[in-house]
Design a protein around this nucleic acid. Structure first.
Length: 119
RNA sequence: UGAGCAGGCCGGACGGCCGCGGCGCCUUUGCGGCGUCGAGGAAAGUCCGAGCUCCGCAGGGCAGGGCGCUUCCUAACAGGAAGGCGGGGCGACCCGACGGAAAGUGGAACAGAAAACACACAGCCGAUGGCCCUCGGGCACAGGCGAAGGUGAAAAGGUGCGGUAAGAGCGCACCAGCGGCCUGGCGACAGGUCGGCUUUUCAAACCCCGCCCGGAGCAAUGCCGAAUAGGGACGCUAUGGCGUGGCCCGCGUCGCGUCCGGGUUGGCAGCUAGAGGCUCGCGGCGACGCGAGUCCCAGAUGAAUGGCCGUCUCGGAGCGGUUCGCCGCUCUAGACAGAACUCGGCUUACAGGCCUGCUCACGUC
RNA sequence: GGCGGCAUAGCCAAAUGGUAAGGCAGAGGCCUGCAAAGCCUUGUAUUCCCGGUUCGAUUCCGGGUGCCGCCU
């Protein structure tokens, strides 16, 4: 199998506060019931992903679970996303009680609405 | 069988595919491959105690704070063990901030005569002394009294008998409390005996006594690198300012402090082998200590444990059968909760389950 | 991650351990042709929650919850 197809290496993460603030300022924003999605497409940059889950969502256990779900969703949808796309997904308090399948469907709907998910 | 008490433990297991963090090795052009390890009993709250780092030294005094029955354990503790005393429970057992109120200051609302010299008030008596008299008694005063005053959370030891004009620890017995002595115990304290007859409560009010405590915290601290403009205002300037303590002394140092404005908000070390876990032996009632062997058991920094699937068990729910002390099928891993410098405790949260010892009630033999 | 603070009526906010002030807002009335302003009257509190000390707790002492701030 093509093992790297569904990977999520360190180089595809947004790790700086500066990057997140640029996304909030310049990205196109779509709001759903449980998540908010910021997307930016530029040439000459790699595909990157980041997520933000504040303390309003819940305790440390639920926040970690939501972040893992979001990373898993990005990993499994990576081949369907353009290579020059940057995404930031912010969780809202509604996401605290949702299962993995519910989160996946909500994020897919937001990405389709942004026109960045093909297939 | 039912109800309950105490102590200890578990808190799914195995496998496959994809993915993530650390370390090691290989390959190193980018990359990648292989191996290995990868959350908890509370990792939580940050309530105590330490290690460690810095504050020049960590010194003295005051202030402030903490602890508070005894003995022991411990690196230390507000922790633990064994005991004492008090309270609760039929019981197994459980709970207790449990020093001092005759060192001093203060509080005790309302009600009540009075809230701490029992003074006044209301009241009782008027035996003794005085007057009248039908010699039974009556009258007012001097005086005596602290029983009854039923309010209050709390009323000046309690109950009984005697005593008296009326009464009172005034006398006696028992009980409670206080003090001395003797005996037992390391001690808290217990038991006995004698004595004079008694003193409210609040110190989680100030306080007194005894013991303990310097301040901060890994975002500490050290190193490397990048960036900007070292500019303005105010204050004090050597009996002064600063050096992290609230103040003073001592010590060190000589321009410093506060605010406004500007820049950076990257990397490395600290960072995981420790009062460490497990097993066995010995000492001790026990907490725990000593000795031997053995193991290495997370180290991220926008922050790693996840997703999907299969099998099996523990419970739970539903359906059907049932010789009802059960069997089969279907669904369902299901509590609290996520390491961030590290330990020892405490506290709080927790579906369900297991083990050991013990108590009570009922039934049967 | 660490350190510190706060919680009282719809809002702001006071209270030596003794029945919880005051202001704004609200309701009713007076005044006015009608309003505003002014004046009078009035209701409103599990003192964040659970325990303890005390005769009695907003206050004192533990534990919990929520909110806010500071440290790179």
């Amino acid at each position: 199998m093509c093992s790297g197809r569904y990977a999520f290496p360190q180089s595809e993460r947004l790790t700086r506060r500066r990057d997140y603030q640029r996304m909030y300022r310049e990205g196109s924003k779509r709001v759903g019931r449980a998540f908010i999605c910021y997307t930016v497409r530029h040439e000459h940059q790699g595909r990157k992903f980041g997520c933000a889950v504040s303390r309003r969502v819940g305790g440390a256990v639920t926040r970690n679970r939501v972040k893992r779900y979001l990373r898993e969703i990005y990993r499994t949808h990576r081949p369907e996303l353009p290579p020059n796309l940057r995404i930031v997904i912010v969780a809202r308090p509604t996401a605290s009680g949702m299962t993995y399948d519910q989160c996946r469907d909500a994020v897919r709907a937001l990405l389709k609405g942004a026109g960045v998910l093909h297939e």
